[in-house]
Design a protein around this nucleic acid. Structure first.
Lengths: 203, 203
DNA sequence: GTCTATAAATAGATAGAC
DNA sequence: GTCTATCTATTTATAGAC
């Protein structure tokens, strides 16, 4: 295997372990074992263990989780043009829920990084999250000008909406794994949260 | 210092360190240093490091975070009797927000324990969270029978409401510390979320 | 590029004196 | 109940051969 390939493979292995057990809960030995190489190989590519964590910042795959999958999504662009509120928020919610639950590993990594105060969390927040607030916030402002929504801080509406969605995913992933309290398809969840939000902010 | 006192003090120190850096991110040496004792003292009271983590389960102070501060709260009991929806949800939200943000340490401990899959998280979920769902859920059912709220799964409404609240606190605590995106008093947040929920679920 | 062997540092845990 | 000293295991990290 070439240097670049090996480096990448070790990094992927480490990311998945950091997501499972956090940075300090993961040993270089485990990383090496799961990657199927010797520990010396790990240190050949990353001088210190913390360099592996830092390398996540430049990793393409990790940034996958920070992509805006809807910026070129035809359903969404059309819903915005047509001011089809339900379709817009429903589609946003459904895409988010599916994405979050398909990438449990990324969500866990993100929460660990927030608790451990690693730059990854800050970068996610300053990139993805802020962009999200302005994207949805702008639409809400426009609809307020139309008189369709009542006057409230658009950012509060975004927080409420994202709160329902993310909190639901966190429950599915972290707290209520078996669906003990609430077992709901993502379609049902998206529909219900969208209805609550829209009725909640309409004029 | 007596044995029991010392044990308790070491436990408190450990809890606060586990909240900061997680279980594996904390060393027994640090615990000893911050508690102002030798490492030997730590191991005198807790044979193994993991025993400290486990002892949190029997700790009164940790259970403080799992209390229902409103079960004897006159404002809330009265709001239920009078079916004063706004006051009920507003008060619940405000108490929750204030409590969460006053006990950042407990919230962090809880999230670490969920990621680390420690029993603390499961106990919190099976105790506090489930009780919360049935408490609010029952009220919503009653109001649905009254014809005041539209038909939807009460648990979905609870998840939406708790989602807004908890997600907001998590933002304040973990992600948006400086209030970069949204800087809101807990009163404003409680008011806004309550309005969105109530308009969102009313008939 | 890969490994085995080993060093160095740290973490968890114990012994025994006071 | 408390400490110092010590031990062992683990973890991070390096050296050097192939």
């Amino acid at each position: 295997m070439s240097g670049e390939e090996r480096r990448c493979q070790i990094l992927q292995t480490a990311i998945s372990l950091f997501a499972e057990k956090g940075f300090s809960g993961t040993t270089t030995k485990e990383i090496a074992q799961r990657a199927g190489v010797s520990e010396a190989m790990v240190f050949r590519h990353f001088a210190r263990k913390s360099d592996i964590y830092d390398a996540i910042l430049d990793n393409r795959a990790a940034h996958e989780g920070m992509r805006f999958p809807w910026e070129n999504d035809e359903r969404i662009l059309r819903a915005i043009r047509e001011k089809d509120d339900f379709t817009l928020f429903y589609t946003l919610a459904l895409i988010a829920l599916n994405k979050q639950q398909a990438d449990v590993s990324f969500i866990r990594l993100l929460f660990y990084s927030a608790l451990e105060e690693h730059e990854l969390a800050a970068r996610f927040f300053n990139g993805f999250v802020m962009r999200m607030y302005s994207f949805i916030g702008e639409y809400i402002k426009e609809r307020q000008r139309d008189g369709a929504y009542r006057q409230l801080d658009p950012k509060v509406a975004v927080r409420a909406f994202m709160g329902m969605i993310i909190h639901h995913s966190i429950n599915v992933i972290l707290w209520d794994k078996g669906g003990k309290i609430l077992d709901l398809s993502n379609e049902e969840a998206a529909k219900n949260f969208t209805e609550i939000l829209l009725k909640g902010i309409m004029a």
